[in-house]
Computed example of a mutant assay.
Amino acid sequence: MNWKTLSLLAALACSPALAQAETGKLLLTGGVSSITGTAGGGITPWAVIGSNATEGEWGASAFTTRAVTHDYALTSYGAALGWNERVELSVARQDFDAGAAVALNGIAPFGVQSGQHIRMDVLGLKVRVAGDAVLDADSWMPQIAIGLEHKRVRPGSLQSVFDFLGADTHGTDVYVSATKLVLDKGLLLNATLRSTRANQNGLLGFGSAAPGRNSRSLQPEFSVAWLLRRDLAIGAEWRFKPDNLQATGRAAGLGAALREDAWRDLFVAWAPSKNLSLTLAWADLGRVVPGITNNRRQSGAYLSAQVAF
């Protein structure tokens, strides 16, 4: 993936040729853009296909997100295309402010530069394989989708740390999501099961040298959203994570310095129009390399804006 790919999809997302004058999709039922670009909640994908397009239509969306915790910050932006309410292709670029990682030089001469950023590109594909969240709202059947997220990370001066940990700089997550909309109660429920080797969503690479875990593991993710009115929703997400690196750190005498925790958030999503949605959340990312942050939990504000056609 490169800047040309991102620019092309962003341009398509704003192209009136893709926009439909009116669609049958209800506000917020297509989700918002996650930090990896796919439609869903902020930190986990849903089975829905992004954009405002319904069957027989093309649609597109673009987003930008900013999250700030006690010691870190993440900026993410990207775009997605949806076709026929069946297929979604997404791209995203993440910029992670890992300035706190300079403290690793006190453990070993890693050569981590002050103010280091980690950048990651994500290419996503999602396909709806069964159900329809809106049309099946009065039955037990959820909408089901399978997807993948291919990620490539550029750690900069943290490459020596990745080498020490035995972490790869690229990997692919595969997931299946089931989304159930209880329309008469304004309730949306989602469960995702992810097969992954990613450390901190991939920002710390993929897998680990022994005795850490280098194989895939299955991690569940859950979301619930309640539509207070047609343009306003509140909800929560919980995303379990693999703890691939902790055993490697313990073997190196670092104790729980590399421990990885689950992510969770509480959010408010508002759609002032069919083409714009804003999401504000309080996110708790647990401990992110607690050995350099005095074991502080990384919690803070998350703000995201999406335009969709």
Results as ranks from 00 to 15, higher is better:
residue 158 L to C: 06
residue 158 L to G: 08
residue 158 L to D: 03
residue 158 L to Q: 02
residue 158 L to P: 03
residue 158 L to T: 07
residue 159 Q to F: 06
residue 159 Q to N: 06
residue 159 Q to M: 08
residue 159 Q to I: 08
residue 159 Q to T: 13
residue 159 Q to G: 08
residue 160 S to E: 10
residue 160 S to W: 04
residue 160 S to V: 07
residue 161 V to Q: 00
residue 161 V to G: 00
residue 162 F to E: 05
residue 162 F to L: 09
residue 162 F to D: 01
residue 163 D to E: 03
residue 163 D to S: 11
residue 163 D to M: 00
residue 164 F to W: 13
residue 165 L to T: 07
residue 165 L to M: 09
residue 165 L to H: 05
residue 165 L to A: 07
residue 165 L to Q: 06
residue 166 G to V: 04
residue 166 G to S: 08
residue 166 G to N: 03
residue 166 G to H: 03
residue 166 G to I: 07
residue 166 G to T: 02
residue 167 A to E: 00
residue 167 A to L: 04
residue 167 A to N: 03
residue 167 A to G: 07
residue 167 A to P: 01
residue 167 A to M: 07
residue 167 A to F: 10
residue 168 D to L: 05
residue 168 D to T: 07
residue 168 D to W: 03
residue 168 D to S: 12
residue 168 D to F: 09
residue 169 T to A: 09
residue 169 T to E: 11
residue 169 T to P: 07
residue 169 T to W: 08
residue 169 T to K: 13
residue 169 T to Y: 10
residue 170 H to G: 10
residue 170 H to K: 13
residue 170 H to Y: 09
residue 171 G to F: 02
residue 171 G to N: 09
residue 171 G to W: 02
residue 171 G to C: 10
residue 171 G to K: 01
residue 171 G to H: 01
residue 171 G to P: 05
residue 171 G to V: 04
residue 172 T to M: 06
residue 172 T to A: 01
residue 172 T to D: 00
residue 172 T to Q: 02
residue 172 T to I: 01
residue 172 T to F: 02
residue 173 D to K: 08
residue 173 D to T: 00
residue 174 V to K: 13
residue 174 V to Y: 11
residue 174 V to Q: 13
residue 174 V to S: 11
residue 175 Y to A: 01
residue 175 Y to T: 03
residue 175 Y to E: 03
residue 175 Y to M: 00
residue 175 Y to P: 05
residue 176 V to L: 07
residue 176 V to F: 05
residue 176 V to K: 06
residue 176 V to A: 03
residue 177 S to F: 04
residue 177 S to I: 01
residue 177 S to M: 01
residue 177 S to D: 01
residue 177 S to C: 00
residue 178 A to N: 04
residue 178 A to T: 11
residue 179 T to L: 00
residue 179 T to F: 02
residue 179 T to E: 00
residue 179 T to I: 04
residue 179 T to C: 04
residue 180 K to F: 05
residue 180 K to H: 10
residue 180 K to S: 10
residue 181 L to Q: 09
residue 181 L to I: 12
residue 181 L to F: 13
residue 182 V to T: 14
residue 182 V to L: 15
residue 183 L to A: 14
residue 183 L to Q: 15
residue 183 L to C: 14
residue 183 L to K: 14
residue 184 D to F: 14
residue 184 D to W: 15
residue 184 D to V: 15
residue 184 D to M: 14
residue 185 K to I: 14
residue 185 K to H: 15
residue 185 K to E: 15
residue 185 K to W: 15
residue 185 K to Y: 14
residue 186 G to L: 13
residue 186 G to K: 13
residue 186 G to C: 11
residue 186 G to S: 08
residue 187 L to Q: 08
residue 187 L to A: 13
residue 187 L to H: 12
residue 187 L to C: 14
residue 187 L to R: 09
residue 188 L to D: 14
residue 188 L to Q: 15
residue 188 L to W: 12
residue 188 L to E: 14
residue 188 L to M: 15
residue 189 L to C: 06
residue 189 L to K: 11
residue 189 L to D: 07
residue 190 N to L: 02
residue 190 N to R: 00
residue 191 A to T: 13
residue 191 A to E: 11
residue 191 A to Q: 13
residue 191 A to W: 08
residue 192 T to G: 05
residue 192 T to N: 09
residue 192 T to V: 10
residue 192 T to R: 05
residue 193 L to S: 04
residue 193 L to H: 11
residue 193 L to I: 08
residue 193 L to F: 03
residue 193 L to P: 09
